[in-house]
Write a protein that binds this DNA or RNA. Structure first.
Lengths: 201, 201, 201, 201
DNA sequence: AATGAATGAGAGTTCATTCAT
DNA sequence: AATGAATGAACTCTCATTCAT
């Protein structure tokens, strides 16, 4: 039994090795420069080897995608302990935005790039994303019930809320604002602050 | 005299023909599949012919880009006549979102795709985008001054506002919501409605 | 009659116009950047127009080639009045080398580039070159007869002599020496000087 | 162990295969017709395969270039044992010229073609050529010191000497003489002979 | 388990040239 | 006389992927 387990452990270690390399390339050189060959060069294996661990390039991207959602979800669960619904909502937004700013390459993969997303929606594997969205809806519902924000259709409010934070990250990632690098997070937090302030009943 | 005019008309028609083909490819096959050759195939001309009308691929993308901004700006100017500041702000949002939903391929080119954006920001040609953003800031300032929305830093409020609508369009374009095609616009308008309702002082 | 003549004059003026443009491009941008389109751009005519005056690109190069020989021949005839055979030989060498250094692009066309030369030898149009070569042989024969240089096979001596000066120009044109631009001519003259000094009986 | 060696041998055989094909194309079709595709066609491999063995086209040309210098240098070292300085100089010339006549395609690559030369001088990789030139200068200096040829500036004399032999080869390669193929070498040797005879003090 | 070798398909671009007008 | 419009053929190079070993 030990042998099989060891083999499996080794296999998954190698997978992780490849994923790390891919993600690094991603960060350092941008999406369009991530190629199988480049990944292989980076880990000092041959391109063919990668195909022993992943069916094709898409599978690599998809796996990274899922890992990204794991990371985001962890961040969001961490603030779920906050008891005040409105504050929790705010922290939720802050966590989301800071995740996006700190991990722009993951964010891109998860929410912006057309290729991987298409694959994922097709594969009905969006479940990992839905989990996070459900958390958001719960928080909104809670805040509405506690009369902290105006009542309304939860689905729509959640969509709006998500749009807001997704918009912040998207604009920043694409450098569509002229905020200097270091003031991105503070500016975003200020925007969230203003928004939460106005929404408060 | 008529001859010159006809030639010019034909030339610009051909240009438009190429642009249309490029845009169609865009919609149908996604950005990474838009190549000079594919465009040429589509219009049943040789690849070399395209270079008679556009300097290179970037010029095609850039032209589409500018045309997109033209379209958006026109939509926004149309609602600028609204005298009530808050309502104007709302209409502004609605116009933006409906532009994005109606012209997803333009929107993608203008605000989502990495390639062209880099070229454009470099080329200091972002001016067409700024024009729209300035309109937004004016409207917000006006609404603040008229005490219709909470006072605050205009820059930040504008960033938040833009994030909100940009987020809506981005999510819809990437099919990250499960709203059926036909209910996208109504859902978006509802979200804007809820948002404008909460922001109102 | 006048009309026909005028037409012909205009035709040959246009030909010269094209040739000048080609040669300029040659000088300014190097051989590989001389294209029909570039020539056309330069003279502000369409590429097709050029084909009204020249059968194809090769004919342009060939014509320039002949013009180069004309220039060289003129230079050589100018020193032919020198009565001392040895001195005449020296001046011959100097004229050749200075022609090459002053008109590197012509020289290239005439003696270095494979394409045009192949065409020319095929077309048996080398006559213009032979004329210059014959002058050289005469001068050598004269110097031998006057006992100014060692007697020997005139054909061989002429070949050696030509090789010497051709070698000088070729090396300089290809920047195979590290002499700075301005000292090329003096260095070449010194080399000729040394050579003529040693050859003197 | 044998496996690795065999693989390496095969790899270098393939490299040589490509180089040979390139060189053949060179000879048969001239420089401007040497393209990656043509090489690939010739060896009946796909163009992409070539990139497994050479980084790019320049590397192929550069490799051929260096091989040429290796060949030339070997020939020159072989006659360096000659003790008489003047005779050594003569043999030097003969070796150079016979190298050029026997390997016209190498010679062209090394000393005549514009493209590769530019790359090489830039890359400061001209060292292989300088090695040969230094040998020449030594020989000339030696002959001057031994009073076998007229004293003078070594640099200039070397330049003149090199020009002479380079000129011979260049003229022959470009078929600018009408010597029949088989009498090229003898004619060249005769020319060297005459030249060495006249230079002798 | 790992890989060296190979490739088809495709990218953007430039060229000399033709021909109807 | 001049040209606008068009093109086929070529260029270098990169990619994801396969397969025998």
């Amino acid at each position: 039994m030990g042998i099989i387990e060891r083999k499996e452990r080794e296999k998954s270690e190698m997978k992780q090795f490849i994923l790390d390399a891919a993600m690094n390339l991603f960060i350092e050189e941008g999406f369009e420069n991530v190629s199988i060959r480049r990944i292989a060069d980076k880990i000092e294996y041959s391109p063919a080897t990668i195909y022993l661990y992943f069916k094709d390039k898409d599978e690599i991207l998809f796996t990274l995608h899922v890992a990204g959602f794991e990371l985001l979800h962890k961040k969001q669960k961490a603030i779920q302990s906050e008891s005040d619904a409105l504050l929790r909502l705010k922290k939720h937004a802050e966590a989301y935005v800071s995740f996006g700013i700190e991990n722009p390459e993951y964010y891109q993969l998860m929410f912006i790039m057309p290729g991987p997303i298409a694959k994922i929606t097709m594969a009905n594997e969006w479940s990992c994303g839905i989990r996070s969205y459900d958390l958001l809806k719960e928080n909104i519902k809670d805040a509405m019930e506690k009369n902290q924000i105006p009542k309304g259709d939860v689905e729509i409010a959640a969509f709006g809320f998500w749009s807001f934070v997704h918009g912040i990250v998207s604009l920043l990632i694409r450098h569509l604002t002229f905020f200097p690098q270091e003031s991105r997070l503070p500016m975003s937090l200020s925007a969230i602050d203003y928004f939460m302030h106005t929404i408060k009943k």
